[in-house]
Nucleic acid binder design. Structure first.
Lengths: 202, 202
DNA sequence: ATGTCAGGTTGACACCGTCAACTAAAGGGC
DNA sequence: GCCCTTTAGTTGACGGTGTCAACCTGACAT
């Protein structure tokens, strides 16, 4: 049996340091040797706790998903379902704005395959389920495409819009398309308005 | 003055080989040394034609954007504006499905900054303008968020939805959310239906 | 006391991008 | 026809990376 005293400390230290590097300089800047260097161990020490680089990455990503879900849950709650849904959308966007590098890690980086990293997968699933649960108690506009699990598919719709918007805003596309800051804000408002038109009945 | 006979051939060979590698194994698998190896020159030869790795990447990306725009323009045209717009959306999705790695290169990889690579930027801009132009001749549902260039902002809305959907479908998220193939198809249809609800007046 | 084994070490290997120095060949000006 | 610059190629090196292999060390169970 392992002692778990100091070992877990070093394991955690690796993840936390990797997290810090990604937060500061992005995924490209992350290297295990740099992590080891910063926490003052040899370049091989991390390998005693993680089989490979991907496993550290998955651990970091898992924590990001958890943090993201926490952020969504911590949104200002309101009684009106539609206001609350809109608040959730805004919380999504604000997280992406405030944590661009973490966001990119979770949603636009090529992470190791989820099936190899169940913890990461579970955390991601949980974040998504927050949106599904929110939708499942609401009645939305009907479409001519009927599905058996509408909440899930409409969650995909919303998620796609928001994620696509964030991608456009974060990526070089914003320079490429020459979007001014007010253009950006207008685009966000306009997109939210169209989302409402697409979903809200009546 | 350079001769341009053999030189352009090697330069092109680099880009084409890089393209092939990315198409086959993704951006992560691309290395300049491998490119050089495959076209049978020394590992430094590419540097005589491109200042850095990023410049080859930008060249490859530029060609991808051009190819993507060509695909959009080659869609089956129909007389009805709305059908045509839907066709454009489907062309977008089919390109992503048929060329997942190229798509990822263009839209979810961290490319070198666009301002340093005007050719790449111009090609990307052109692809986007196809959608803007298509929208600019149509009358859409009004929203309570008025903007000075509605076609552009609604293009962003559509682009976001489509890109977000593709991202979800391509990424590990599809495994994470345990989407079956019929779930995927249903999600696409449902999303297109909601897009229509959001945009189409009346 | 002894053996096992997790957790740390150093050292090597094969990659990578890039810098530097060298060489061969092609043109242009005199 | 010679010289000199420029271009396109070469080889070799440096520092960086992830990862494999071997070794050491100390705690714990028997």
């Amino acid at each position: 049996m392992p002692k778990h005293g100091r070992a877990e400390t070093i394991k955690d230290a690796c993840v936390e340091e990797a997290f810090r590097i990604i937060e500061a300089d992005g995924l490209e800047a992350l290297s295990l040797r740099e992590v080891a260097r910063r926490i003052g161990v040899s370049h091989q020490a991390p390998y005693k706790h993680f089989p490979s680089r991907d496993h550290i990455l998955a651990e970091v990503a898992a924590r990001c998903y958890a943090d993201f879900a926490r952020h969504l849950e911590a949104r200002p709650q309101t009684a009106d379902d539609w206001d609350d849904l809109a608040g959730m959308g805004l919380a999504y966007l604000s997280y992406a704005r405030e944590n661009p590098l973490r966001y990119r890690l979770m949603f636009t980086s090529t992470l190791p395959p989820a099936e190899n990293h169940p913890d990461m997968m579970a955390n991601a699933k949980h974040a998504f389920s927050l949106l599904c649960d929110r939708l499942s108690t609401m009645t939305l506009r009907s479409t001519d495409v009927e599905v058996d699990d509408p909440a899930k598919h409409d969650a995909i719709f919303i998620w796609s819009c928001l994620h696509g918007l964030v991608s456009l805003m974060q990526s070089q596309a914003t320079d490429t398309l020459a979007l001014s800051p007010q253009d950006k804000n207008a685009a966000i408002a306009r997109l939210m308005a169209r989302l409402s038109l697409a979903l809200r009945p009546g």
